[in-house]
Structure formats: C-alpha cells, structure tokens
Write a protein that binds this DNA or RNA. Structure first.
Lengths: 221, 221
DNA sequence: CTGTCAAAGACTGTATACAGTATCCAGAAC
DNA sequence: GTTCTGGATACTGTATACAGTCTTTGACAG
C-alpha cells in the first residue's frame, strides 16, 4: 500500500500573504494609490515582517509591484504598449499549444475539450468577471491538454499579471454565444490536424481579444 | 532630457548570493549530490541566513532547486521529456519574435543583427561553453530586437533553466561555420517579410538544436 | 520668497534568536 | 535479528532586534 503524503508541500505564511495580496489586488481592495509597507501589513495581519517581505518581493519580481521611491511598494502601471506585448506573448504561447494539439490530433482529447468548453460557458447572468474567469479556464484547458509545463507556467504568468493589472475590467461583457462558437471552432481546427492553420486561428482569436480590449479601454476613457 | 537614475535598483545581498549560486551551478561546483543548507552556505559566505534563504527560495520557485526530503535543497533533475518541452517553449517564444521582426522588416535593424551575429561568432578555439554563450547571445539579440519584454523575460527564464541543468554540456561542439550560415539565413528570412515562413524557419532551427541535443545525450550515455 | 542644510522619521535590509517539525539513530522489546 | 519507540539532531520558518539609507520637513541664510 502506498499512501499519498497528506500535504505535498508545506504551506508557508508567505504563500498565504501572497494569495491575500493577489486577491486584494484583483478585488480592487488595493488600488494604484495605496502604498504597501511591510511593517503596516505585518501589523494588520498580525504576523512578523519576514513573510510579508517575502511575498512583496515575489510580487515585485513578477512585475506586479514596484518599489515606490519613498519606500514601500506600489502597484505597477501598465501601458497600452505593454498590453499589446502581453497579447503577443499570449499568441506565442497558446499558438504553440495549438500546434502541439493539432499535431497530436487525439479525438478523445478534443472531445473532452469540447465538453469542457460547453460546460464552462454555461453561465446564467454572468458578470464581466465570470466571463473572464470562464474564458481563462477554457484557454487554460487547451494549455493543460498540450501538456508542456513550461508553456503552462508562462500562461499562468501572463494571465496572472493581466489579472493583477485589472486588465480585463475594461472589456465589455460580450455575447457569450458568439464566443462559444469561437472556442468550439478552435477545437475544430485542431481536429483537422493542420498545424499552421491551427496556429493561425488561435492567433486570430487572441487578436480579436486584443482588439476588443483596446476598444474597451478607448471607450472607457 | 530624461536622465536615467544612477543605480536603477539597489543591490541586495540576496542577489549576490543568487548570482554566486547560479555561476556555481553552471561551473559544476554544485553537483546533483550536493545538499544546499541555509546555515552552511551562510557560514561559508560569512553572512546571515536571511539573504541565503531568499536566494534559495527564488531558485526553488524557478525550478532550479528542489527541497530535499531530508531538509536542504538539491539540484532539480530534468528528464528527456522536459528537455523536449523546453525546446517547444523556445520555439514558441522565438518563433513569435521572428513573426514580429518579419512583419516589421526594418532594414537597419536586420543589418545590425547581421553584424552582431558575425561579431559574436568570431571565436578562436572556442570551447563548448563559448559556443553556447555565443549562440545564446545571438538568439537573445533577436528577442531584444523584437522588443517585447514578456517574450524576453520568458526567453531568459528558459535559457536560465537550461544552463542550470547543464543542459548543453552534452552537446558536441559543432562546426561554427555551419551555424553561422544558419543564423544569417534566419536574418534573411526575416528580410523577406514572410511571417509564416519566418516562424517556420526559426522553429526548424530550434528543432535542429533539439535533435543535436538529444543525439548528444544519447551518445554520452 | 527661494535655496540650502540638518535633523527627524520612516522603511528597508541584515542579523540573530526562538520554536517547531522531520529525520535519523540507538537501544529496548519481541 | 528485526521492529518499534523514544530522544537527540538538524534544519527550517517566523519573530524580533539592529543598523543604515533615503525622504521629508523645518529653520535659517541669502
């Protein structure tokens, strides 16, 4: 008998702090004007500075936070330029996953993807955030299926940063049914086995997202 | 006029430790059997445990180190499977950069790349490591030219990990002149402006690297 | 009113101390 | 001889203490 270890990885306080900060940022509890100071956060959370410091430095290395010149950390700003770069990076990562999946062309796998998409997009009265979460989970599922841990890691990095930057708050909640058609079409192109075409279509899909995004930003200004 | 800040970022002791560990790994001063213990390293470097801990945790998060079950950190092992994934990720990142460069098709930029390649490959009695470094710097130059900071970040992540894993030690020192032709040909395809073709050729170039690599590993066993 | 200098304050980085947990070993029990 | 069980050991995570640096502010000189 081989029992799995109960907790594969010890949970550190720093991880807890990290998670709390991330959700706080996503929930807009932390805004661009807030200054995050180690001592204050530690006091607030009733722990010592050490784990707080660790979490803050991690977020800084990930590009989510910047050191403020007067000490403390601030939310990093993102420019329109950087948004474009983020989408370009997405296209690179997810396009490659598409190539891999198209080359493999595993019918079972593709069927599972279809099922996943339909399930994920069955939302009642979805908010913008619901839509975002569903969209992300669908795209992540493609990545997961491709089975390359580095690509997956980069995917999470990109989307994590996007969330941190409230990047999708500007997106109008688009028609789900249209999007569903899009995602299913992505599976269809994988089924053809044409790698170049798969890449192209994924890239185009992401490009659509970008256009929508920029449009949303422009209109919200 | 926009003057750059003198010291963009304060240098922390942890960074120093990190760098030392990375070079030690690359120089094989740290092998797969060594156990890295915070206290011992700290004592050896005559500093406290805090910055050492920080550096070790960073390397762990980057996948270079693993926590050993008996405490301390060990070099992470990499499988042949993971090497493939690493190359796939490379293809994704660098292929996208190629698309960007081909789309831009800036003659000056391409000329600069050519010059860089020729300069970088002018090596006398190069060792395997010299070759590796030159190759890396050439590829990085392409990425740099593409001008996407996320792609560049991922590039560094991938190559950093590759170095940490001694991934290129197995590669026989191949004929530089052949490789030079290859790299110049990469610039040529960018000059045509054909994005799909550019992607294809970069991917093929990286595939060649992979084949060589696997071959090297197989032969060294 | 403006510019300069000094002192205070705020925060960080580093060191050290403390507590908890997992591992390993020795000796007892069978 | 093998297996179990304490206890010592080793190492980490967290807290706290200390020292240095950067910013800001206030007073004074021009």
């Amino acid at each position: 008998m081989a029992l799995r270890s109960i907790s594969t990885q010890r949970r550190r306080l720093a991880d807890e702090v990290y998670d709390q900060l991330v959700t706080a940022i996503m929930d807009r509890d932390i805004g661009p004007d807030d200054r995050l100071v180690q001592e204050k956060l530690a006091a607030e959370m009733e722990i010592s500075r050490t784990p707080v410091r660790e979490a803050l430095l991690r977020l800084e290395k990930e590009g989510v936070l910047n050191v403020a010149n007067s000490g403390g950390f601030r939310l990093a700003k993102i420019s329109e330029e950087e948004i474009l770069e983020l989408y370009q990076a997405r296209a690179a990562i997810e396009g490659q996953a598409a190539r891999i999946l198209a080359a493999r062309q595993d019918p079972e796998e593709l069927e599972a993807l279809r099922a996943f998409i339909i399930k994920a997009e069955t939302l009642e009265n979805p908010t913008t955030r619901d839509y975002f979460v569903a969209n992300r989970s669908i795209h992540r599922q493609f990545m997961d299926a491709a089975g390359n841990r580095f690509l997956l890691e980069m995917f999470d990095m990109i989307w994590g940063r996007a969330m941190a930057f409230h990047l999708f708050a500007a997106i109008e909640h688009t028609d789900i049914s249209k999007s569903l058609g899009d995602h299913i079409a992505l599976v269809d192109v994988l089924a053809t086995g044409d790698r170049a075409q798969a890449l192209e279509q994924f890239t185009a899909h992401i490009q659509d997202g970008f256009d929508l995004h920029i449009d949303g930003i422009r209109r919200s200004q």
